[in-house]
Nucleic acid binder design. Sequence first.
RNA 1: CGGGGCGUAGCGCAGCCCGGUAGCGCGCCUGCUUUGGGAGCAGGAUGUCGGAGGUUCAAAUCCUCUCGCCCCGACCA
Length: 573
Amino acid sequence: MRLSQSFIPTMRQDPGEAEVISHRLMLRAGMIRKVAAGIYSYLPLGLRVIRKIETIVREEMNRVGAQELLLPILSPAELWEETGRWDFYGKELVRLHDRHERNFCLGPTHEEVVTDLFRREVRSYRQLPLTLYQIQTKFRDEIRPRFGLMRGREFIMKDAYSFDQDEAGAQQNYQRMYHAYCQIFSRTGLNFRPVEADTGLIGGISSHEFMVLANTGEELIVFDPESSYAANVERAEVALPQEKKSEELQPLEKVSTPNTKSVEDLCDFLKVDASRVVKTLLYQTGDNEITAVLIRGDHQANEIKIQRFLGLHDLTLASPELVEKIIAAPVGFVGPVGISNIRLLADNALRTLTDFIVGGNQTDVHLINVNSTRDFVIHDWGDFRQAQAGDPSPKSGQPMQTARGIEVGHVFMLGTKYSEKMGATYLDAEGQSHPAIMGCYGIGIGRTAAAAIEQNHDEKGIYWPMPIAPFHAQILPVTASEAVRVASEQLYKELEDQHIEVLLDDRNERGGVKFNDADMIGTPYHIIIGDKGLAKNTIEVKDRKTGEKIHLAPSEVTSWIKHAVMQKLRVQN
RNA sequence: CGGGGCGUAGCGCAGCCCGGUAGCGCGCCUGCUUUGGGAGCAGGAUGUCGGAGGUUCAAAUCCUCUCGCCCCGACCA
């Protein structure tokens, strides 16, 4: 392609609207343009990258036997009412109605639509297993769209759905998809890690997220360097503490602690470490009901774990009014001692904690040398806190580490959640009807492109991994002579004839402009043709990522490039 | 939705406190010179100052309302 005739509007300056590096570079390299918050146009260069990623995804989906179809973007409310998600999905679901006032939504995901298709068409176990997928634009009215393609309201997703007759088959399908995902992200040239994850709004039994490791990632993961264990902090289990509880307990004491509403204030005042303090978090779990959760002062409560334990899907801290009403203690000084009318949960970390500090249920009063069982009764123990760096791994017991990641893929075992509600059943060999066992599997295509940039850039711009690069090579005629023009045109033709995707910068620009644009766009190989080189009968080939340069005779360039491109495509295959 | 910030030329910004001519850099157009890391000179075009109302002789500037966007927190591919 000729740059002079291409719609690749690069920008010299950083746009004010973008903060995150991938967003900035996509705008500056002329890959995308914003239409509204979280809604983007893909310009030719950006679309080429998107298509490359889609191609890899298609190849790997097809390889594991998934079949591509295309479901509608618009779907009727009735399907969503069947599963309860019309209400449950909340404001994120883009709702609209037609001229007859019938309700529809723009698909944020397609479990309902595909399950409806299945129940209409599939009757027999002989038709199973069945895995269907599509690559399509999705709509989610995100609370806060941000970072360009990283979190859009409209975005391109590959979503796949599997149907099996039994648990074993479903597990097998899940494993196949898991490996296909590993294959896909390896092929895109990304440094990624699959982690155990929470199932969120999609629901279901188990799931893994595929995280591209990047410091700018929105997700925090913990992993065990000694074993394969890795999980989203939302999900990560914390092993039971090992050390024994000391037997000699100090007597309970009441102390005055003026104006110490936070754990931090209290630690400063009493000159103790936060690990000696226990905070009492009060959650509203019913109209007039509060549940207390005890967490060590230096730990973070994990509301997802608490929700799961309580079987709720919505958990909020109790209002100060409700607290006053039910336990008659001031917020900030609440503690478990002497409270009888609410359920008390405690994080496992408290099992080995003795002589700790809690709120005294009076303004400006705390209790010290408090001990569970002796001073109050815990109704339920559990893992209620967020994992953090240094926590023991549930597999090896070794201290875990944390890392930031970008979630680019997610695989779920759904079980029969959707098939039961929607009557998606098949007949087995005995003529018995069973709900199909489902799985669903998503990949954010645009987000994968953004993650690739987060992981592959320097101060000058992007350096694409070959398999998803918009072009394999770029020709930069850096001086204006006829000899350079002729040599560039000839090489351009040779490379195109060899099916190398090549961009010819035939603009009437100075060398510096071409160098800078090429560095920003991130084509893996830059072929630099100038009078200086031609005088010595050489053309320079530069590796964008490493900066390594080699000088070749003009007649050698095409075969060298072809070989190098093939090599890089194959290595990452 | 809560908190912080921003809307002025295609892009990046100044001007606003203290009301009176809309400005700078880059880009764009024309010409000449230039051409291996964002060229030089000369000339030129470009604005409902986000929108609506108000105050005033006079509003980018002051007041009210509104819309949009960005960043930080609760959601997710």
